Amino acid sequence: MLARTDLSQLLDELATPATQSIRSRRWHCPMPDHDDQHASVTMHTDHRGHERWRCWSGDNTHRGDAIDLIVATQRVNRADAIAWLANRAGMIPDQPLPPARRKPQRARPSVVPLDPSVVRYVHACEKILWGHTGAPVRDWLHARGFDDDLLRANHVGADPGRAMMSRQRGLPHGHSLAATFPALDPEGNVQYVQARYLEPIGPDKYDNPAGSLGSNPRLAWTRTPDGRTTAGVLLVTEGIPDALTAAGAGYAAVGILGSQAPDDRVADVLVHRTRIVDQRVIAVIDADPAGRAWGDRLSDLLERRGTALEVVEPPKDLDLNTWARLTPDWMNALRSDVPLSRSGSSLMARSTARSMHDVLDN
């Protein structure tokens, strides 16, 4: 039945019409309880050849195949959803089955090594940032609270756009001026990059390299300007800019690339890394449903591995970078005045009685 269902057509029929991003189509989330302000749903074909959809701004249950889509939108159980789809596909009892659609399948390794062109792109953009062409991006980065030493330590750059800089196919498209945020490994080597358009076209602010040029590592490590960090603490944030904010304040910090990114691989890396250097793990989430969802997801993953995760939520629907810009003494407020504001797991419930001074300075 799934082989005779075109998921993209089904999303067109049952979800809010798709928008066109640079590389793919997007739909608004079909879950009835999710007021998806941007088109956050994408679709892909898994390793078994099944088409699947996923919402990147909802919680981890906003995903599935065509059956899950019918369950969500038609408010029926799975058996009725299967019958609904079978009838739509013309699968009538005691009659020959209609032909299945041919779906191309491409074998791709689970982890694609980084193409050297990505590293060359990062270094070219880094050089541009410090020239005349990069001045608008420098101003934008400074306005976000990033000083020059922090930017240099993390190889941040400026993409002037494809009209001014040619690029290999698969690199960020470059439809307009963008800041480039490399994702570093723990040793400071470039392992990925994200381009953040200063004036996005459509809902997509970020542009990533094509999967054929390297797998998304899911974790982006940052470096402090002087190489020294507050002992015993690792801050985990949503995205590279928030991680840079934490690094600028002197903390070891790593950004989660995508609110749905926490998975077993991410959890294994975090646990292994923090046990080697004896660090506590503290997640500073975005103050919105997606941020709370990935915080809960990461809490669960780390708890299964015997590691506690303490979760901090900024006030007033802010992310860490915006909070830091609006509150110059945010570190003092975070240490002494702001109690942990939520308890998404048993680990968190035990932490809510402690002040942020206890969380960050003990």
Rank of each mutant, 00 (worst) to 15 (best):
V137C: 14
R138K: 09
H142M: 13
F146W: 02
D149Q: 15
D149A: 15
D149C: 09
L150V: 06
L151D: 06
H155Q: 13
V156G: 04
V156N: 04
G157S: 01
A163D: 12
R167A: 15
G170H: 02
L171G: 13
H173P: 01
H173W: 12
G174S: 13
S176M: 00
S176R: 04
L177I: 11
A178V: 03
A179K: 01
A179Q: 04
F181Q: 07
P182Q: 09
A183T: 02
A183M: 02
P186T: 08
P186E: 03
G188H: 07
N189M: 10
N189P: 01
Q191C: 07
Y192Q: 00
V193Y: 04
V193G: 07
Q194T: 15
R196H: 09
Y197I: 06
L198F: 04
E199S: 13
E199W: 07
I201F: 06
G202N: 08
P203T: 11
D207R: 11
D207E: 13
N208D: 06
P209Y: 10
A210R: 08
L213V: 11
G214A: 07
P217R: 08
P217K: 10
L219A: 08
L219R: 09
A220Q: 04
T222I: 01
R223P: 01
D226F: 03
G227V: 05
G227F: 08
G227K: 08
T230F: 07
